[in-house]
Computed example of a mutant assay.
Amino acid sequence: MTTSPITADASGTWQLGDLPVHRIGFGAMRLTGSGPFHHGTPSDRERSLAVLRRAVELGVNHIDTAAFYFSSTRSANELINTALAPYPDDLVIVTKVGPFRDYSGAWGTAARPDQLRGHVEENLRQLGRDHLDVVNLRRMRQESIAEHFGALAELREAGLIRHLGVSDVEPRHLAQALEIAPVVCVQNRYGLDSPDPRTDELLRICGERGIAFVPFFAVAGEGGAHGPTGDERDEVLAVARDHGATPVQIRIAWTLHQGRHVLAIPGTGNPGHLAENVASGALRLTDGELERLNAVHTGRSLP
């Protein structure tokens, strides 16, 4: 007898503004192949397209991307457009602006506020859309994001953007943005191996305000943009054994257990890993397991 695969709806849902999404989404960064975001062999193009289509088949309706996710052989936005257009009505594509790369791939300084319209239009062109569902402003070490976020708010008023978010921010930056326009999501680095009191505070604030908190590098841990290091915490391995799951699945499940407003966007170019990531949304950790994993996050010892 064939067992039906676990789909993304098992993770529950949350609203990005007026857009409902399942709490397990998909991050497109790793589809770009070797380059600044992934140091390894580029995924086969047809397999990358198949992974995107399979993600949607498994109920994923939240894809995270950016025009600056590209390498010499891959563009995340082009892959998404090729694989999924015409887009399903319930599919929410979230992109981000702020970092600047030229067409050779070289990084420049952070985009100026007056350059953000061009970056938004480039995402529109690559994705084949007439508006963007959600655009995150990725902070590039600015003390204040008010001018940049204000420029995006004007594009929202013009109808090019439906909702706005912020990324790589502190609580004070979120406060600056909220004075200008509604914020539907915050993207920050967060995971078992990424303790940061300011991010923990953001997680709490977002929960209180009904804002989605969307961690990046939650699976990669200390490896960050380079991907998982291959080493794993004993506590994660033990919980994984108890559930017959992989350590990656436990990391995703722990992420989702941090609050109903927390969304996960694990990325992969591997169809098998995709199915495992989506199935993580069905894992339910016990209070004891959460206590053990939370202790890893905070660096405290259990008695």
Rank of each mutant, 00 (worst) to 15 (best):
Trp14Glu: 05
Tyr103Ala: 15
Lys96Ala: 02
Gly267Met: 06
Ile80Lys: 05
Arg251Asp: 06
Arg260Ile: 13
His261Ala: 08
Asp9Phe: 06
Ala76Pro: 00
Leu160Phe: 08
Val296Trp: 04
Asn188Ala: 06
Ala225Cys: 04
Val92Met: 11
Phe217Ser: 09
Thr65Gly: 02
Asp90Phe: 10
Phe70Met: 05
Leu164Ala: 04
Glu235Gly: 13
Asp168Gly: 07
Gly224Ser: 09
Ala153Tyr: 06
Gln142Ser: 12
Ser4Phe: 08
Gly207Ile: 10
Leu19Phe: 10
His226Ser: 12
His22Asn: 15
Tyr103His: 11
Glu57Phe: 07
His62Arg: 07
Leu160Met: 10
Leu84Ala: 13
Leu160Pro: 04
Arg138Trp: 12
Glu122Asp: 15
Arg139Lys: 00
His173Gln: 03
His173Val: 00
Pro42Phe: 14
Ser144Phe: 01
Ser144Ala: 00
Asp9Leu: 09
Phe26His: 03
Gln249Ala: 01
Tyr103Gln: 13
Asp89Leu: 11
Leu178Thr: 15
Ala146Asn: 08
Glu276His: 09
Arg47Gly: 05
Asn77Met: 01
Ile161Tyr: 04
Ala66Asn: 09
Gly40Ser: 11
Pro247Leu: 13
Ile93Cys: 00
Glu147Phe: 07
Thr109His: 04
Asp242Asn: 13
Gly25His: 00
Asp196Gln: 13
Leu16Glu: 01
Thr246Ala: 08
His131Ala: 15
Phe26Arg: 00
Gly269Met: 08
Asp287Ile: 04
Asp44Lys: 04
Thr32Ile: 10
Pro42Trp: 14
Leu31Tyr: 03
Asp44Pro: 00
Asn61Ser: 02
Glu276Trp: 07
Asn188Phe: 13
Val120Ala: 06
Glu179Leu: 09
Leu127Cys: 05
Ile93Glu: 05
Ala110Ile: 00
Ala146Glu: 15
Ala8Leu: 03
Pro228Val: 14
Phe26Ser: 02
Phe149Leu: 05
Pro266Ala: 10
Glu179Ile: 07
Ser301Asp: 05
Pro215Gly: 14
Gly267His: 03
Pro42Thr: 14
Ala245Asn: 05
Asp114Met: 10
Ala295Tyr: 12
Glu57Trp: 10
Gly288Met: 05
His148Ile: 02
Val134Cys: 06
Asn294Ile: 08
Leu202Trp: 12
Leu84Cys: 09
Gly150Trp: 10
Gly224His: 13
Thr229Arg: 13
Gly281Ser: 00
Ala55Cys: 08
Ile252Gly: 02
Thr41Met: 10
Val186Thr: 01
His243Gln: 05
Leu124Asp: 11
Ala158Glu: 15
His38Tyr: 11
Gly299Ser: 11
Ile250Val: 15
Gly191Tyr: 09
Val134Arg: 12
Gln115Trp: 07
Val239Cys: 14
Lys96Gln: 01
Leu116Gln: 07
Tyr87Leu: 01
Val184Cys: 08
Thr95Val: 04
Phe37Trp: 15
Pro197His: 00
Val169Pro: 00
Ala151Lys: 09
Leu202Gln: 12
Gly267Asp: 03
His39Val: 10
Glu46Met: 11
Asp64Val: 03
